[in-house]
Design a protein around this nucleic acid. Sequence first.
DNA 1: GTCTATACGCTGATAGAC
DNA 2: GTCTATCAGCGTATAGAC
Lengths: 193, 193
Amino acid sequence: MIPAKADTRRQILDIAENLLLDLGYNGFSYKHISSALGIRNASIHYHFPQKSDLGVAIIQRARRRFWRWSHSEEMQKRNPLEKLDAFFILNKKFLHAGGQCCLGGVLETCFKTLPTDMQMETQAFISDMLGWLTELLRDGRERGAFAFPGDPQDQAIVIMSSLQGALQVVRATDPSLFEAAARQIRKTVKSEK
Amino acid sequence: MIPAKADTRRQILDIAENLLLDLGYNGFSYKHISSALGIRNASIHYHFPQKSDLGVAIIQRARRRFWRWSHSEEMQKRNPLEKLDAFFILNKKFLHAGGQCCLGGVLETCFKTLPTDMQMETQAFISDMLGWLTELLRDGRERGAFAFPGDPQDQAIVIMSSLQGALQVVRATDPSLFEAAARQIRKTVKSEK
DNA sequence: GTCTATACGCTGATAGAC
DNA sequence: GTCTATCAGCGTATAGAC
């Protein structure tokens, strides 16, 4: 049996990740976390001595999560278009979580204020995602599922940027516009056949 | 003749706007501005009593700037494709300014931490830009310059989001990738003829 | 592991002299 | 308009008791 308060570390990560996606890295503090969790400020420093330790841990966990997602048995069975759709759904989850931004976008906009270790982890995270998406587009185009001009990496950046940007734009307009934008992006790469 | 230090207000706005695009709204303080300008903290409060007054002023100035840009005599002469290209160049300027984000993206990612007056001004700014881009796409498609499926507004969101997102993504990758991404976006709406 | 207590610079902001 | 002086609160962070 697992005691309810067994893994405070995990709870801190969960709360901090949500705060990060909602408010940005410079928009939340240890106080937000401690009051949400019902513990004291100092207790969080026991698990994450510095705020950047917490930041790095959040990104590393997101990287592992993305790796498991993209390498899951379920995912391997899918064809390229289904994989792309799964990526769209992955992004749409941020919207349903009360209009959050995606991790990459949040970290990039405050990139210059981040300590070096967080900057490096951010770069690795983006590289992971961009690599996966590039490979998917390359493979999918070879197999006739996708049709787009130019370099798969350029197209990968456009898709990542679009979704990331759209999650942000709808915060200042209407959340319902995200879906329509996502469909529009999908059309630009899906082959007509 | 205009004394060198005549309009401190304007200099504050210039510096603060650059800090905002570099570091995010919660990433810069009055101290950054005062030390950059060689004056005291309190002097800035004379011009902008609250930080949100400064924030609102930055957005309002950007809105006026965009209005003048989009209504300029020079712009009226351009055809739809040339207007779209001008919009791309407008975004590329942030990249050349040392890898800045665009104003919309910065404000949206910390949207939930902003005071109400700044949130409203942000919404108006996005609405201005989205309205202009939507009208351009609608008109351009009617005249045969553009070819894309669906609602012009959906396409407008995709283009705005892509450029906004791309400016952010290249911060964690390579600035040179922006140009390629921009060309890729351009291809998705330019008619083939 | 979590607590209390504490440090201390930075933050936005004000009062009042010049 | 800009200055000096000052403020209360918050930020991250540490020491040491339980």
